[in-house]
Design a protein around this nucleic acid. Structure first.
Length: 470
DNA sequence: ATGTTC
């Protein structure tokens, strides 16, 4: 795949064959070392009906289902633009939430073992069922699917302020519960308030460094401060919704005269029954994901309160796997677009009307979960942000799960992390080994490339004190 | 990511 360097950290894949737009990849040559297959996916996405601007990829691009992970594609609703479940991925509304403690590391440190043991007991995780919330009636799941974090807060699992600091105020309005199949509901029923497995985690962190004092202060972050980061998604429910709707769209696509170079790019117009059905189901999964993170926050708050008398306030909650209907200026005119972000984080610029009032002048907080045992980052949206105001979402794997598990045992890894002063509470040794830091790219390189490409600005760097994993 | 292959 030939890349034309337009400027440092910005490469173009020229239009050819059925591509409707070029590809644009924000990265360094180093980060693209093994990206051949995923660059092919960037080119494939450029063929989608109604795509505007370019098929974009973030510095943490890697191979995904149909779309690359780290892909951003926007389609024009008024020009036959399509929606594709592959542009969101299986873990619909996977995202990150950051809570800031009203205490610094020195204050919290004596209570840290008790906090970690408390989290170990109260954070459900790993594959399969289990969640902090036991459903009390048949209508409760539907209320979660419609109300997201808002419903969890209304039921007493949080505070009103949590909602103003959550993307979309805690709930997407247009969830269509009817489009969530019985099987998806069944899978989701017993998993509300659970981390899941693989790269999902809950970490106790401390702010190790601040690169923008003014913005960090506005976000409520200062050096030494203790934080809790939660990275999880919509579990089996989102996975089942993706499966169901990829199938439905694959069957219907030919009726709209759409052909795609990869069947995993199944799509139909946003303004079609299948497109509307998917977006309605996807919104329900988005709300499930937010409620999931809200309930885990509540569980973490109880542990911190009991073990250390420390409170946690929400900095922000943002998803990196979602398609959203947004209005953007494209070649001078305002257009309604369906913006797919798959392993890419929305990063609204300072002054954007959808940001919480008290953060508006600083840009949207962007939360980047790092690899276990390494750093995580807080970034902010910048003016003129390319790729429809999007940036990276994390590190990205370089080693298969199998290879990682052969390279190190879970017990060895825990010993190594604990020697570095990081407490580890795994549910499975195998799962821990698969998440070894050496199996991932260096997240700091990804963040540096994103900033250098003009997609965001760096605000703070966080390092783990304790890791809770599936 | 995922009751890790309907």
């Amino acid at each position: 795949m030939e890349l034309v360097e337009e400027r440092p950290y910005r490469y173009r894949i020229e239009r050819r064959g059925p591509m409707r737009v070029p590809g644009v990849v924000f990265a360094s040559r180093d980060l693209l070392a093994d990206a051949e297959q995923s660059l092919e996916q960037v080119a494939n996405v450029a063929t989608l009906p109604g795509i505007v601007g370019a098929s974009y990829a973030m510095p943490d691009i890697h191979w995904g289902y149909g779309f690359p992970i780290g892909g951003v594609a926007a389609t024009d609703l008024d020009d036959g633009g399509v929606v594709s479940p592959g542009g969101v991925g299986f873990d619909i509304s996977c995202g990150v939430r950051l809570l800031a403690a009203d205490a610094d590391r020195r204050t919290v440190e004596p209570a840290l073992p008790a906090i970690m043991d408390g989290l170990d007991r109260s954070i459900p995780r790993g594959a399969g069922p289990g969640g902090v919330w036991r459903m009390t009636g048949p209508g409760q799941l539907e209320r979660i699917l419609r109300g997201g974090s808002r419903y969890a807060v209304d039921e007493g699992y949080g505070e009103q302020r949590d909602l103003t600091r959550c993307e979309d105020g805690g709930a997407v309005a247009d969830a269509d519960v009817e489009q969530v199949s019985p099987r998806a509901r069944e899978r989701g029923l017993g998993q509300v308030g659970s981390l899941g497995s693989a790269n999902h985690f809950l970490e106790v962190q401390q702010v190790a460094g601040v690169s923008d004092e003014r913005v960090a202060a506005a976000f409520g972050l200062s050096v030494g401060q203790v934080c809790v980061m939660i990275h999880c998604g919509s579990r089996g429910l989102g996975h089942q919704i993706c499966t169901d709707h990829v199938r439905a769209m694959g069957d219907a696509m030919s009726r709209y005269g759409i052909t795609v170079p990869d069947r995993q790019l199944a799509c139909t117009p946003v303004d079609s029954p299948q497109g509307r059905d998917y977006l309605g189901a996807m919104a329900a999964a988005a709300n499930y994901g937010r409620a999931n993170r809200q309930l885990l926050s509540h569980a973490a708050r109880r542990v911190f309160e009991k073990a250390a008398g420390v409170g946690l306030s929400l900095v922000y909650d943002v998803s990196h796997n979602l398609a959203k209907i947004e209005t953007h200026t494209v070649t001078g005119s305002r257009r309604r677009l369906c913006v797919h972000r798959k392993g890419a984080t929305r990063a609204f610029p300072p002054g954007h009307p959808d940001l919480p009032e008290d953060l508006r002048e600083f840009g949207q907080p962007v939360l980047i979960p790092g690899t276990m045992g390494t750093a995580s980052y807080v970034l902010a949206g910048v003016p003129g942000g390319d790729a429809f105001f999007s940036t990276c979402h994390g590190a990205g794997r370089v080693m298969s799960r199998h290879r990682a598990a052969r390279a190190v045992t879970g017990r060895e890894l825990r010993a190594r992390l604990e020697a570095d002063g990081i407490a580890v509470r795994p549910k499975s040794w195998r799962g821990l080994a698969e998440e070894a830091p050496e199996a991932y790219k260096d997240v700091s390189e990804v963040v540096a490339a994103s900033e250098a490409a003009g997609l965001c600005r760096s605000v703070a760097r966080l390092v783990p004190l304790g890791v809770v994993k599936g």
